[in-house]
Amino acid sequence: MTIHQFYQPPLHWQQFEEFAVQLLAEVYDVPTAQQYGRSGQAQHGVDVYGRSRKHGLIAMQCKRLSDRDANNQPYPGGPITREFFFAEAQAIEDFPHAVSIWILVTTARRDTRVQGYAEELNEQWEKNGIDRTATVWSWDDCVSHLNSYPDLRKRYYRDVIQVNSVDDLDQMVLETISMAFNRTAFELPLHIETPDEFLQALQDTQRAVRTGELLDRKSRHVIRKSIGGWRQIHNRDWQAALGKIDKDLRALRAGVEHGLKDGSIRRTSNYLDFADRRKADELEELRSGCVRDLSAVLIEAGLPPI
């Protein structure tokens, strides 16, 4: 019996389309598989295409979803409605070459409703004498292909392949959270922090702690992504410690926001100016406590402290 591994979908639609090219090349043995056109050009429901010796021309429409559930997984079915599915299928009628297989490949999880749309479409095509087959590759199907084709797996997920145990997964989450704390918001004294940048840093750090996604400070693009946030930590003691850090970060952010609203914290020359010294000490202790608690977990995990 072979145990298959799950893989997260690519973060960006461009990566997903590039992945689909290689997927088509491997699964249908289409070495000439390529992306069709570019953004802004009429693509007629086709993002990727290639000609198979056995099956003829195969066309793929790529649909990367951004909608995710509490576990950071794409919602089943997502926004793939019957109207969307049939509109995309109709668009390929204007494709300049005869398509024998049309595949909607998506990061959504497998869903019987969407599979039903494909069967309904195939019945319509057969009734109308159209020699073409429609199918849906959900992300579950993509994962199955990744587990079946080692070269494809190594090309896109060679770092993930190095994960051999729950301890490795815990380390990946901890490393991402550690990187999120490596910023001036957790180094400079509070009174020389700029309000907007400080609040943005707290928000980004909370996001990394909760979801495992780390954003670039300037571009706002995701630059690192682990398999979820603190709730995915398997070590119960570490999970509890990180849960407390998440709570304290929320309290720190709320304290600063509330202070700016009620005037106990002022913006002076674009810096935080505390009218209430006791409030400043409370917020400083919350911030320092987050760093101490995280450093303790990192040291126990064999990682460098903050």
Rank of each mutant, 00 (worst) to 15 (best):
F6I: 09
Q8I: 02
P10F: 05
Q15F: 03
F16C: 00
F16W: 11
F16Q: 02
A20W: 04
A20C: 10
L24Q: 03
A25I: 10
Y28T: 02
P31Y: 14
T32I: 13
T32N: 15
T32G: 07
T32Y: 05
T32R: 15
A33D: 06
Q34F: 11
Q34G: 13
Q34I: 13
S39I: 08
H44P: 01
D47R: 08
D47N: 05
V48M: 08
R51D: 11
R51M: 09
R51W: 14
L57S: 09
I58F: 04
A59V: 06
C62F: 04
R64Q: 09
R64C: 02
D69Q: 02
D69R: 05
N72V: 14
P79Y: 12
I80K: 04
T81P: 05
T81Y: 09
T81I: 03
R82S: 06
E83Y: 06
A87Q: 12
L104W: 05
T107Q: 00
R109Q: 13
Q115K: 06
Y117L: 03
E120F: 08
E123C: 06
R132P: 03
T133H: 13
T133G: 07
T135G: 07
V136Q: 10
W139K: 05
N147V: 03
P150R: 04
Y156W: 13
Y157C: 03
D159E: 11
N164W: 14
S165M: 01
L169C: 01
M172P: 00
M172T: 08
M172E: 09
L174S: 04
L174E: 03
T176D: 01
T176A: 02
N182E: 14
N182M: 14
N182W: 10
A185Q: 08
E193G: 04
T194M: 09
P195L: 03
P195N: 04
E197F: 15
Q200D: 15
Q203V: 11
A208P: 10
E213Q: 14
E213H: 13
L215F: 13
L215G: 07
K218F: 10
K218L: 12
S219A: 09
R220K: 15
I227N: 12
N235R: 00
Q239D: 09
L249E: 03
R250V: 00
R253F: 07
E257I: 13
L260K: 06
K261Q: 13
D262A: 02
R266L: 11
R266M: 13
S269K: 14
S269R: 14
Y271S: 03
A275L: 14
E282R: 13
L283M: 09
L286S: 09
S288P: 01
S288R: 15
C290A: 01
A301I: 01
A301L: 00
P304N: 02
